[in-house]
Every structure is written in structure tokens, then in C-alpha cells.
Write a protein that binds this DNA or RNA. Structure first.
Length: 417
DNA sequence: TCTGGGGTCCTAGGACCC
DNA sequence: TCTGGGGTCCTAGGACCC
């Protein structure tokens, strides 16, 4: 990774406490109160995590990805709300439409954050900081939400900058040579993108504490700890050398559904029933996005939190329950988890490509696609859940299947073939 | 205080082909 | 006959991000 040949102006835009902020906006009486969006705390015994916490809730030590029981014990009086994904996704889509007024080069990172390359729009809209302030103003006026922005010569530095003065922060890093590296140097290395707990611990063992320390480490030491590529990548980021382009059209590479039982389950039939429900939801989503895939992966997590996956790659891409389920069932039987209770079941599909022409398909698979089309049509007309397989009726389906993401998977990818 | 659900990317080893 | 190196595809697991 080398420095970009031409100077760029990259923005990282990040909605503050997104889900919680939307809930407060919808229910003004919540303003000023600690608001936690996530799993049902169930008086402290709930299973699941915090999805978003308002800044008032954060003062109690509550943060996203925290077990919900922990959040409850930190602040039992907080307002605990279940996520309303359809609502957030609608807001998210307007947010991205707003960003696209400033440049075509908008790369969504999730529902609530994006990279923008505004290098080419500065003549029209003003320089980076001017555009950043205009975005903050527009999001505040039109959506009544607050947003933090980082302006920098590359993606990674912009991302760090936007995070530094939340909420409603604006941090600008000069594009002059060396300025970005100097900006990063004093920050704790935990802020490096890709340096989670394991990587941070190993960097500490090498004597590093700050990003500047990582930038100065002997490449041979880094390579010994992380491999040649991994070490070089870390050090390049630490030196603010990041020429990755802003990519608006990144095609999805996999699609999956998973669910954690309320209580761990030893009954294999119950595991199999959940697998069927997940496969149904997954294939419906695949067809909605016009995707079909060749590699099926089944995932089990046991009560001791060990995760086991089994995968199989088919000759041709599939998108129906009839084609996918037998494979998923076989993979499930190959998961060596006997005598342990199951906590989570998941299924995903990757290796996207075109569905093979029906010429040589088995009759059952052809019929399966016809049934699927009919079901899809009914769901589109009358809403999700109007048609359900008989074998699914004896149990509640896991969670709502959320609709399309702001970055919906596009046509089958061709990258790397 | 036990740890969701959606993803991406990387690594290592084995099979297989040239 | 033996050795071997490179490339690609696949699987399983793991780290990480929001």
C-alpha cells in the first residue's frame, strides 16, 4: 500500500447513536433519558446485546455489543426498546440520498455510516470542511439527527477523525505530507482499524502503545507476529498510507440467517426445525435480491460457545429451499456437536453466480422454483408470513426478517471470477 | 455480565492439475 | 522414476467491524 498519487479529500460520515437517536426523535418524551435499543433485558436475565445506547445511557457505562443483562444492571431505569429495523432502514435510505447530493462517490459501511470522496465536488460545493458542515446542517434540519464527520486525505484517517469528537463532531486532518501520520501518532493503537483485542495484545507484547509506536516498529518484528502481509498492512495504516478507493458499488459476497435460542436446546429435531425456518427466510431474501449461490455453510454454536461450521460447494448456484435444504441438513448432520446443547443455528450462502438453466434440473427442483415464485408473489402482495410451510407452523419464526439494506447486494459479482 | 445478527477478510492445509 | 514448484479451488476456523 502506497500513498495516493494525487491528493484526495475523503469524508467519513457517521450518525451518532443512530437507532437510539431515531427512537428519541420519534418519541420526544425520551429526550434526555438513557435509551437502550437492543434485546429484551427481562429483568436482567435477557439473552442478547445492546444495539445502540444514547449518550445519556453511555454515562452509565452502557455501550453497543454489551450483554443486555449487564446494561440492565448498570442502569435498570433506562428505557429499553426493541429495534425497529424497518424504521431505521427508511431513515438510512434518506440519509444516503442526502449524502449523494454532494458526490456520486458514496460507499456505505453500514446503515449509519459512509465514506465520501469529494475530491471532484470541491469546486461545486466548497472544500472538505465546508461540505462536512453542509452535511451536518442538512442531516440536522431534514432528519433531526446529529452526525459526526472526519475529513482527511484517506479513508482510514477520516474514519478515526470522525470518531474523535462525537457527537456532532467535525475533525479535519490536513492533507499536507506527514500531517496525517503526525495526527495518528499519539493515538492508542486500539484505534487502528483491524486491531481488535487479540491484535492489540500482540502489539503490546512488541512494546507498542500508540499508533506512532506501530509505525516505528521493525517490519521484521511485525511480520513475525502477523505474517508478511498482515504486518505490512498494519504498519501502512499506522503510517497513514491508505490508498483504497471509495467504492460505491460493492457487490455482496454472502447472505445468511442465524438465530440464537432463548434457551440452549439439546433436542436435534428442534435444531432441524430452526434450520428449516432459517433456510426458508434465507432463500426468500436471496430471490428478493436476485441472488443465487453455490456454497452453503451451516453454523452451530454450542452451549460452551464453541462455533462449528460445515460447508459444501455445489455444481451450480441455488436459490430455493428445495435445493438448499437437503444440503443444509447433510451439513448439519456432519457438525460434530453430539451431547452438547445448541445455542445458535445459522445458514449462509456465498459464491454467488447465475442459476443454471432449468434444462437438466431435477423435476423436484423445478417444481420448487415454481412454488417459490408463487410464495414470493403472495408475500409481495399481502406481506411477509401469509404463506408458511406446514412444518413451520408449530413454532414461532425467529425474529423479523429485515428488509433490504441500504447497500443491497447487486447483480452477481464477477470480481476475481 | 456471559457473549446478537449481519457481514468482510485472512490463513493454513489438502486436493488436484500442469 | 523421482522430485518439485506454481496455481486454483475448497474447507474450517478465527479475527474483526457495525
Amino acid at each position: 500500500m502506497t500513498a495516493a498519487a494525487t491528493p484526495r479529500t475523503i469524508l467519513h460520515v457517521d450518525l451518532d447513536a443512530f437507532y437510539a437517536a431515531v427512537e428519541v426523535r420519534e418519541q420526544p418524551s425520551l429526550a434526555g433519558r438513557p435509551v437502550v435499543v437492543g434485546a429484551d433485558p427481562k429483568g436482567g436475565r435477557g439473552r442478547g446485546v445492546v444495539s445502540a445506547a444514547s449518550y445519556e445511557a453511555r454515562r452509565f457505562g452502557i455501550h453497543s455489543a454489551q450483554p443486555i443483562g449487564r446494561a440492565y444492571s448498570l442502569c435498570p431505569d433506562a428505557v429499553f426498546l426493541p429495534p425497529r429495523m424497518e424504521l431505521y432502514l427508511a431513515v438510512s435510505q434518506r440519509f444516503f440520498a442526502l449524502l449523494e447530493r454532494f458526490t456520486d462517490l458514496v460507499e456505505p459501511l453500514s446503515v449509519d455510516e459512509a465514506f465520501l470522496d469529494v475530491t471532484g465536488s470541491e469546486r461545486l460545493h466548497g472544500d472538505g470542511p465546508t461540505i462536512a458542515r453542509a452535511i451536518q446542517r442538512a442531516v440536522r434540519d431534514e432528519e433531526r439527527l446529529s452526525v459526526s464527520v472526519g475529513v482527511a486525505p484517506c479513508k482510514f484517517v477520516a474514519k478515526i477523525a470522525s470518531d474523535l469528537r462525537k457527537p456532532a463532531g467535525l475533525v479535519v486532518v490536513d492533507g499536507a505530507p506527514g500531517a496525517a501520520a503526525a495526527f495518528l501518532a499519539p493515538l492508542p493503537l486500539e484505534r487502528l482499524w483491524g486491531a481488535g483485542p487479540k491484535t492489540a495484545a500482540r502489539l503490546h507484547q512488541l512494546g507498542a502503545r500508540t499508533i506512532g509506536d506501530v509505525a516505528a516498529l521493525a517490519p521484521s518484528h511485525l511480520a513475525a507476529a502477523f505474517g508478511g502481509d498482515g504486518g505490512a498492512h498494519l504498519q501502512a495504516l499506522a503510517r497513514a498510507m491508505d490508498d483504497r478507493p471509495v467504492e460505491p458499488e460493492r457487490a455482496a459476497k454472502s447472505l445468511g440467517r442465524e438465530h440464537t435460542f432463548e434457551v440452549d436446546v439439546a433436542d436435534r429435531d428442534e435444531v432441524a426445525r430452526l434450520l428449516l425456518a432459517l433456510v426458508e427466510q434465507l432463500t426468500a431474501r436471496l430471490r428478493r435480491h436476485g441472488l443465487a449461490g453455490r456454497t452453503v455453510t451451516v453454523k452451530l454454536r454450542t452451549d460452551d460457545f464453541e462455533t462449528v461450521t460445515r460447508a459444501a460447494t455445489l455444481e451450480s448456484a441455488v436459490d430455493t429451499t428445495e435445493a438448499l435444504l437437503p444440503v443444509a441438513r447433510k451439513l448439519l448432520s456432519r457438525c460434530d456437536t453430539t451431547r452438547r446443547a445448541i445455542r445458535l443455528v445459522g445458514v449462509s450462502l456465498s459464491h454467488f453466480g447465475a442459476v443454471q438453466p432449468a434444462l437438466f434440473e431435477e423435476k423436484a427442483v423445478r417444481q420448487g422454483r415454481a412454488v417459490a415464485r408463487a410464495v414470493d408473489e403472495l408475500c409481495a402482495r399481502f406481506g411477509e408470513g401469509v404463506v408458511t410451510r406446514g412444518s413451520l407452523l408449530d413454532r414461532a419464526p425467529p425474529g423479523p426478517d429485515v428488509g433490504p439494506k441500504p447497500r443491497p447486494p447487486r447483480a452477481p459479482p464477477e470480481r476475481n471470477g
